[in-house]
Design a protein around this nucleic acid. Structure first.
Lengths: 144, 144
DNA sequence: ATCGTCTTGAGATAGCTTATCAATATCAAT
DNA sequence: ATTGATATTGATAAGCTATCTCAAGACGAT
């Protein structure tokens, strides 16, 4: 029961303690479910957890995911019409190359770009938690 | 009246022709206004154009900006709770550094990153039309 | 166990975007 | 230039996601 999520669990408890908030059954349940994902929407988590606890409210999911953002465990990102809550502790980050012709998506990683991003951030006094890089263009076939 | 936006105007007309769509007074007016901006929201453009044409509907703005996206002239980007429509032809492209603590947004440009992006694209047979780079983290004040 | 405070669940509400539809504008063919 | 077929517009309703409200219940320090 110590669990592989002990680090995040204590990060949450520390945040709760600092802000006079309480550790509840729902917060524990939602955190455990959240840490199993790389990113998820509130709606998706609502349906996922409905199997375990049918009375868990959607508003509670939103409130709790936003709480995780405050605690630095999650990070909200607007994608399409919904908000994606990213698991900050998840490492394997990849970026996307998207063809505007056929919709093909190629994933890539580039350490040099990431290093330059760190430099830009540092120059502006920022500490990067995560990022999003999408390149839009035409793939070889769609270019004709 | 030839105008500095001739290139985009013909790109729009080409798209319209290919899809059995019509060239209207509203589309021309919205395109001209749009090309003067680097990026704008539908709501902001609605208020801006209300001075010229008080009867122009908000739905038309949304429809037209989405049309520009289809034509490759604009690009939608979800930012906060609203959608930003970016002017693709605008050169001085800037990226964003976003504080997850206070919401502060810092714009930046970095040629080296852009060059590396080109390399990644070329390696995969892509020709970049535009891109989106957002760095999320804590600004100096929010880091404490 | 008690009490003050925080949290929850359910539904109402708010904000942004899209759908509906009758009236109108556009454009190719007369 | 007129016609006719089709696309577009404007106004408003509807849809969706996320947040707010508040009475009832849970938490945790004492």
């Amino acid at each position: 029961m110590s669990g592989k999520f002990a680090k995040e669990m204590s990060a949450l408890k520390e945040h709760l303690g600092k802000h006079q908030l309480k550790f509840t059954r729902q917060r524990e349940m939602i955190l455990t479910a959240f840490l199993r994902q790389e990113h998820i929407t509130a709606e998706a988590m609502y349906h996922q957890l409905a199997k375990t606890d049918p009375h868990l409210g959607l508003a509670t999911i939103y409130r709790t995911l936003n709480l995780f953002c405050d605690a630095g465990i999650a990070q909200a990102r607007h994608f399409g019409s919904q908000t994606q809550y990213d698991n900050v502790s998840h490492k394997g980050h990849h970026d996307h190359l998207i063809c505007t012709g056929c919709g093909k998506i190629v994933e890539f990683e580039n350490c040099e770009i990431e290093k330059l991003q760190e430099e830009v951030a540092a120059r502006n006094g920022f500490t990067i938690q995560t990022h999003r890089l999408e390149l839009y263009g035409l793939c070889s076939r769609c270019r004709h």
